[in-house]
Write a protein that binds this DNA or RNA. Structure first.
Lengths: 212, 212
DNA sequence: TTTTTATTGAAAATTATTTCACAAAATAGC
DNA sequence: GCTATTTTGTGAAATAATTTTCAATAAAAA
């Protein structure tokens, strides 16, 4: 939208590159080649060069890429130069773990509010995050201008909660439920389906010995 | 490997279909069309028909697919007719949540052993799963013939632990660390990178308004 | 300075995946 | 039994993603 559209496959790899560039910077490396990056992130070096080239000529022939400036560039692209607030809905088993999971450590995202149906949780603070009752979902999302939610509720209520969140202005959903959500086309859902991942792994193991 | 190779993209969708077929069966539905499935799982109906067709003609024209027999078929394909044991390595924040996460509810996978460095955890039982000290990793994996591990250790030790697990006979790794693991080509890694997912979501939000 | 080596950027080729569109087959209604 | 309707399965086309290849350029070595 902002620039010309980058392939989706490329977009999904940007955070991987970004993370490794941070590691390189912390190790005071000033330059890196596509081959070296390739080893670290397990993406073919030609694919890396192709990915980078969508953003212009970022490297220098015979030299490689300058870590610092590449990092600065990706930081901007990935919106990591500003803090993004997210809300977590459903402070159960997994939700609690995600409250403690330090998203803020390597991404400029912070969970600034959480919601749960359980009355004993409402109006407490868990892992430094205030928990609101479900009834306040829409209002708080609106008031706090939160555009991203992490959804860790039971599948049975996932669609209802989603509808409410979208009514509250949410634009992106990290969906840990097994339900495939119905959303307007300007709302984006990123599914993280743990059972699926495990089953896919088993399928590949059984059916693709060796090689991808 | 066992049959002719199915496209990877198709393979990744099989668990999604499988789950929804279970839901249909529980609701005593006997038939389903590709269009109806499409609505539920948010995959284009032509893609669904194409996916199914890799396994032969599973449907009937003018009728659709028989839920029961389709389910039976996918259960076999996905190895869900046998129980698969997995080990969890790293009983921290996220690891603990995954111990409680009921993989067994909708997939025939069970976490039958867990491992952690902390001495106070070793030789206890958490959420019904015995915790072993890290030193026993290789031996236990061998003894219990565990081929799949869920990796929830700090990134800093991820590669070492991986090497040890592979030495113990592991063939598949569900990797929750941010490290891209180096493994022999007959070992499969499925990455679940939460920070990445969140950053990708933000990127899509900022750069792809509307439409995929 | 000149030569060698390293490395990008991009065009072209290849491979993978999705979608269109419709004939063929089966069902459902009359 | 006939006709209208539904729905699959699949060639062909379109789109997306990866990989190969190599000229161009920068840095390092001679």
């Amino acid at each position: 939208m902002t620039e010309q559209k980058i392939p989706k496959a490329t977009a999904k790899r940007l955070p991987i590159y970004y993370r490794y560039l941070n590691i390189l910077k912390d190790a005071d490396k000033t330059r890196v080649s596509s081959t070296e990056l390739s080893d670290a992130v397990k993406v073919d070096s030609a694919t890396i060069r192709r990915d980078f080239s969508y953003f212009g000529a970022l490297g220098k022939r015979g030299y490689g890429y300058d870590v610092e400036s590449l990092l600065k560039f990706f930081k901007k692209i990935l919106n990591q130069d500003k803090l993004t607030n997210a809300a977590l809905i459903g402070v159960g088993n997994l939700g609690n773990a995600l409250l403690n999971f330090n998203f803020h450590q390597n991404s400029n995202v912070r969970i600034s509010a959480a919601f749960d149906v359980r009355p004993d949780l409402a109006n407490t603070v868990q892992s430094g995050v205030p928990i609101y009752p479900m009834a306040e979902l829409r209002k708080q999302l609106e008031d706090q201008q939160i555009k991203i939610v992490i959804l860790t509720v039971p599948s049975s209520v996932a669609q209802d909660v989603t509808d409410e969140a979208i009514a509250g202005g949410v634009r992106g959903i990290l969906n840990f439920t097994s339900l495939r959500l119905s959303v307007p086309k300007d709302v984006r859902v990123q599914n993280v389906d743990l059972t699926n991942e495990l089953q896919t792994l088993i399928y590949f193991l059984d059916h693709y010995n060796d090689e991808d």
